[in-house]
Structures are given as structure tokens and as C-alpha cells.
Simulated assay, not measured.
Amino acid sequence: MEKTMAGTESAHIPQQRGESLQETAVRYADERHWDVVPGTWLEAADGVQHCSCGEPACASPGAHPAREDWATQATGSATVARRLWSKQPTASILLPTGRTFDAIDVPETAGFLALARMERMELTLGPVTCTPDRRMHFFVLPGAAAKVPDLVRKLGWPPASLDLLALGEGAYVAAPPTRFGSRGAVQWARRPTPANRWLPDAEELISPLAYACGRDR
């Protein structure tokens, strides 16, 4: 199966304790060659954290695009990333999908079930995130969004019957340590390391992910 390189041989874990959002974003661009874009941020008012977008019922406070042209603002340059976050140091870190990687989005319970099965099967895995709204994102080769519905269908499920979505061009994932309001921060279930610089094809992961989502219904 063809794979692609998601980082360099010398790539380190891109987030370290105490590291600022700016430095983390710079490391994602520099060491993993991921495009990054600053999103909204959290603002405190009367002791309560609110999203900078100003929407009281914001679904992802502090963790969504801050402007309509966010996709064109995204950059893979560490220098540009440093400049972008210098304007708003507490901005969330968003990673556009459909470029260096796509992401398969599943419920947390199904994701951990699938992750355990994948590890037993010794499958090649890329980075995986967990979000405070109990979702998991499995990083895979670009192009997954176009073929996942057919892959799920071939496994015997109507795509709409499973809580499984492939994020590609025009979408994004929030990267650690971005916070979702008071709900907590995005975390790595599997950190980006030199060992997982090779991303799997969606076809390699779809069976355990679809099976886990089917059980989770």
C-alpha cells in the first residue's frame, strides 16, 4: 500500500509541557510540515470563558475558524505561523484537512475500541486526537474523504447508518493543546513521532473503525 511521509526522520513530539500555542503551531509547521491556521480564542468575562466569535451558544468555543477565508490563510511556513500567532497568542490551532492528511472522525468510544483492535492487528497508525466533545480523529492519507463512503458500503453498511465521517478538503481538525471552552483541551491519543511519520491509507483502517462504529450504535 502506498504511503506518504508526514514528517522528517528527526521529527519530535510537537507539543511539550508549558509550550505556548504559538510555539506549538510553529513546531507543527516546521517538524511535521502540516499547514496551520489560527482559529478563535477564549475570552474571560465575569469569570466565564467565552468564544471570541461573540456567539453565546457557540458549539466549539475557542476552537473554530475565526474568519471565512481561513483556508487561504493556512500556512506551512514556520516563519509565517510565528507571525500569525504573534497577533493573537491565544488563538486555537487548526489543521486543514485535504492537504497533508485527511482525518476519519468517529465517536470516542468507537475510536478507542478500534484503536485497541488496530494495535492487536499491528496496523500502521498515524497520529490520533481526542477532543473534549468526545470525538477521535485518525490521521490518514489525503483522498480519504472521497473514498470512505464506498469503502463503508462495501463492508455492508449504508454510510449514513454509521457515525463515521472522513474530513477532507475544506474541513479542519483542532490540534492539541487547543481548548474547547470549559470542556477541556484536545489531546493526543497517539502523538506524532518519528515512528508514525508514515500515514496509513483509509482503506487500511476502515474495517476496524466501521466495525467499532457499528457496535457503538
Rank of each mutant, 00 (worst) to 15 (best):
M121P: 01
E122H: 13
E122C: 09
L123W: 02
L123E: 05
T124W: 00
L125H: 02
L125V: 05
L125M: 10
G126D: 02
P127Y: 10
V128K: 11
V128T: 04
V128W: 08
V128D: 05
T129Q: 06
T131R: 08
P132H: 06
P132K: 10
D133Q: 13
D133F: 13
D133M: 11
D133W: 12
R134F: 09
R134W: 08
R135A: 03
R135W: 03
R135Y: 02
M136V: 10
M136A: 10
M136D: 00
M136W: 06
M136F: 08
H137Y: 14
F138Y: 11
F138H: 02
F138R: 05
V140K: 02
L141M: 15
P142H: 07
G143N: 00
G143R: 01
G143F: 00
G143C: 01
G143P: 01
G143H: 03
A144Y: 07
A144L: 10
A146W: 06
A146S: 11
K147D: 09
K147L: 13
K147M: 12
P149C: 12
D150E: 15
D150V: 14
L151F: 09
L151C: 09
L151T: 06
V152Y: 02
V152R: 01
R153K: 15
R153F: 13
R153M: 15
R153Y: 15
R153N: 12
K154S: 14
L155W: 07
G156P: 13
W157H: 14
W157V: 10
W157F: 15
W157P: 05
P158T: 12
P158N: 11
A160V: 07
A160M: 10
A160Y: 10
A160G: 05
S161N: 10
S161V: 13
L162E: 00
L162R: 00
L162P: 00
D163K: 15
D163F: 14
L164A: 02
L164E: 02
L164R: 00
L164C: 06
L165K: 14
L165T: 12
L165A: 07
A166M: 05
A166C: 09
L167Y: 01
G168M: 04
E169V: 10
E169H: 12
E169R: 14
G170F: 11
A171S: 13
A171N: 13
Y172S: 01
Y172L: 05
A174L: 06
A174F: 08
A175R: 08
A175D: 00
P176K: 03
P176F: 02
P177C: 03
T178C: 07
T178F: 05
R179A: 14
F180G: 02
